[in-house]
Amino acid sequence: MGEYVLLMVSAALVNNVILARFLGLCSFMGVTTRVDTAVGMGMATTFVITVSSMADWAVETYLLQPYGLGYLRTVTFILVIAAAVQFTEMTVRKVSPPLFQMLGIYLPLITTNCAVLGVALLLVEGKMNFIEATLFGFASSLGYSLVMVIFSGLRERLALAEVPRLFAGPPIGFIVASLLALAFMGFSGMQTN
């Protein structure tokens, strides 16, 4: 159990998808102007990354490795991710049409989110078993959601702050993101213990 917790803390905080690996930056800047959209996007991404991590692990272990098809990995994973997004969209619509009306808008954006593909490729590199791969995907996406929510909160504050005209909008956003990345670097000290 302890190793799972370590794996999750490492994936969520120490090697945070956004602030340590610099994946998924487009959605990080794009949908973080409001906390609620960041939560919607973060939760949807968490679900898709976890499901696609499971599917990607199975495809890698039972299809690509046994038949020596490693060179098709990227293409296959993209296909699996697109399928996972469609699956999620269909499921949410089936589970509750009102929920789909509220949340459906975030789903197509995830297909082109590089964090999803990045996590899938990282878990192949890590040579994990199935449960570890799933927990790694889940924790990575939880770290992604956490940063999205923190950053959207900061940007809501920034919208009220008086910023020099030159820095207003995205520039000050990038500066805040860099400070946030510095703060998250503090977690890398945990790695050696």
Binding site: M43, A44, T46, F47, L99, L103, I131, T134
Partner: peptide
Amino acid sequence: LVKASLTAYAIPLITLLVAGI
């Protein structure tokens, strides 16, 4: 929106992970 996304995504994820572990 937060309630909706918790319902749609968090509940299935929690049951999935608990069952797996």
